[in-house]
Amino acid sequence: MDAVLLLIGVISFVVGLRVFLTKNRVQRLLYLCCLNFAISALIALYIKSPMGGVVAAAYFIGSTLSSNAIAHTIGKVQRLEGRGEW
């Protein structure tokens, strides 16, 4: 285990704990984005062949798509609850 793997492992553990402990929903989404970057890099470093790159790209595009949908729904729900309080 060299410096790169050690760095990515420490970062993913720290970010995973912060996803669990944060209360704000938007900040939780930002930490989740950082964790997706780390897992995609770990997949590419674990499988040292071109197929691993394809898997990493597919995982990254899929997770970005779903976090886009989550952020859009957070906006819709905030608008709905704001209108409800009026």
Partner: peptide, 22 residues
């Protein structure tokens, strides 16, 4: 809350994909 549960479900699925790849 529903959105918190869906965010955590996303987190869980990331772990599942990593375990399948390993």
């Amino acid at each position: 809350h529903y959105l918190d549960k869906i965010i955590m479900l996303e987190f869980l699925t990331g772990g599942l994909i990593g375990l399948i790849v390993s």
